[in-house]
Design a binder for these strands. Structure first.
Ligand SMILES: [Zn+2]
Ligand SMILES: [Zn+2]
Ligand SMILES: [Zn+2]
Ligand SMILES: [Zn+2]
Lengths: 165, 165
DNA sequence: GGTGATTTGTTATAACATAACATTATGAGT
DNA sequence: ACTCATAATGTTATGTTATAACAAATCACC
């Protein structure tokens, strides 16, 4: 694994890292952004982000809902969907279309397209920087992009069999 | 969901074109590929591909199913899902994750990643060539990509309001 | 024409998502 | 502190998408 000339930002998620840092950083960032934009970072919204941040796996809305229900924070689907919608709308989380699931954003605050690598074996989701040439195609076609999603599915380093690495 | 506004600027992908050619070409290609690979291009599968090929809009599985049912070709969800699964598996169609829908492939036969521009107004779906830098990120992360989807949502040239073009 | 694999038919249910409306909390202005 | 408007949450009900499981028919091949 030698360093390349133009190394993309390290995809958080695969491999060992200080995940406690991921969590506290993301929560602090969300808190700050909400204050700056005068958004209500309510208990349900805060808790849902914490739940997403517990790992780099994507969680379905009903998984999140089950967690909320167990804690007495809500028990009906709209509660989860609304909180998740809020987090996605303001860039604190992303929806993974291939999985019908949600994952905390690995670099909130900045506006960015989302690009993911999804391990079909262990379920980890790592976020990368996209900057796709699709934007060039779109420009050429006169298509105005409003949102873009790029999702790769495959095997993360930890899940690739010895003999195929 | 048809583009029935002002005259479109005739851009690549979304403009007027000889769509009859799209259809006959794609059906012939599918026929040939199935023969070459000894796949059964059964009446249901053939008809589903024809239905998808009627336009460049994406169709939901239940839309397709309704068409099949009206023609006596099947009336239960698995019939549609199985035929669509066959078409996707062999590269004759793509699944649009953002829409939970399916669209005929614009250049079947060759193996290729899929990239789409989806108009949220008229529903047209244009397929582009992807070649994303996500592959580079994946290489750097040691992630083995098995499939990739890139989807942009926005407005196609025909649906962009006069004052915003 | 037998037979083993593939495809289709069918039932049932799982999984994902939102519409609509009632209730409660928040916050800006008085 | 009170009032009103807005935003968020609670709740009911339903809509939409997708698959498991098994039976019946069909097909490919010998
Ligand atoms: Zn982490
Ligand atoms: Zn992000
Ligand atoms: Zn066409
Ligand atoms: Zn294609």
């Amino acid at each position: 694994m030698k360093p390349e000339k133009t190394t993309p930002p390290a995809p958080v998620g695969f491999g060992a890292h200080d995940h406690a840092h991921c969590k506290t950083e993301a929560m602090a960032k969300a808190q700050a952004v909400c204050e700056a934009r005068k958004l209500q970072f309510t208990p349900v919204r805060k808790r849902v982000l914490e739940i997403l941040l517990e790992s780099h796996e994507a969680l379905g809305a009903y998984d999140v809902l089950a967690r909320l229900a167990a804690e007495g924070l809500g028990s009906k689907p709209p509660v989860a969907y609304r909180a998740l919608g809020f987090l996605v709308e303001h860039g604190f989380a992303h929806r993974i279309e291939k999985l019908n699931a949600f994952v905390a954003c690995s670099h909130p605050g900045r506006a960015h397209d989302a690009a993911f690598m999804i391990c079909r074996d262990c379920g980890l989701v790592a976020e990368a920087e996209p900057q796709s040439p699709l934007r060039r195609s779109a420009g050429a076609a006169g298509f105005q992009i409003e949102s873009m999603v790029i999702e790769a599915e495959g095997l993360c380093p930890a899940c690739i069999p010895e003999d195929k690495a």
